[in-house]
Amino acid sequence: MEIQGKVIAVLAPREGTSKTGNPWKVQEYVIETEEQYPKKMCFEIFGNDRISQFASMLVVGNTVKVSFDIDARQWNDRWFNSIRAWKVELPMQEPMAEIPPQAIPEPFPPAQPEAAATGESTDDLPF
């Protein structure tokens, strides 16, 4: 699944050691979609290598596109959702559409100096 939004929070990383003695690290981030009714989503990135890989993009204020998996697990008769990102990228900026130059109106025709000098009018207007 994918979602695009602005990073609004970077939470403190959590570290620990697994039952087998291997160290682990996870960090959570919160993004907010840019829709009429914005939604917030908290997701995590697991592993020190991935956290480092995406750290430059996951800065508060940046708009990012996050690819993630959703999973649920049970603990003490309760269920918890896990939203784990596996790819983060900056969205492609669409090139600005080229605005066609507006038609420049033709200037008014120049006044006829000959007619003005003789007092004759070339128009049919009654005033």
Rank of each mutant, 00 (worst) to 15 (best):
S82H: 08
A55V: 05
P38S: 06
L58A: 03
Q36K: 15
Q36F: 12
S67M: 08
D49M: 00
S67W: 06
V60W: 09
V64A: 03
V60G: 10
R78Q: 14
E32G: 02
T33N: 04
D49G: 02
D69T: 14
A55I: 06
I45W: 03
S67R: 15
A72M: 14
M41W: 03
E34R: 05
M57I: 09
G47L: 01
R50S: 15
R78T: 07
F54R: 11
T63R: 11
Q36I: 11
S67C: 04
M41Y: 02
F46V: 00
A72V: 11
K39L: 15
N48E: 13
D77P: 06
D49Q: 06
Q74D: 05
Q53E: 15
S67Q: 11
N76S: 15
V64H: 05
K40C: 07
N76C: 05
F43A: 03
N81W: 15
V60Y: 10
F46P: 00
M57H: 10
M41K: 01
F43N: 03
K39P: 02
N81E: 07
Y37H: 11
N48M: 06
F54H: 11
C42A: 14
E32Y: 05
M41R: 04
I70Y: 08
N62G: 01
V59L: 11
A72N: 11
I45D: 07
D71G: 07
N48V: 05
F43C: 03
W75N: 14
F80T: 02
K40V: 12
S82D: 09
A72S: 13
R50D: 15
L58H: 06
G61I: 05
K65W: 09
C42M: 09
F54T: 06
S52Y: 06
D69C: 00
A55D: 15
R73D: 08
R78G: 01
G61P: 10
V66K: 05
E44C: 12
S67P: 03
Q36H: 09
R78Y: 02
D71I: 04
V59R: 14
R78W: 01
D71R: 14
R78M: 10
T33V: 02
F80H: 02
M41I: 06
N62R: 12
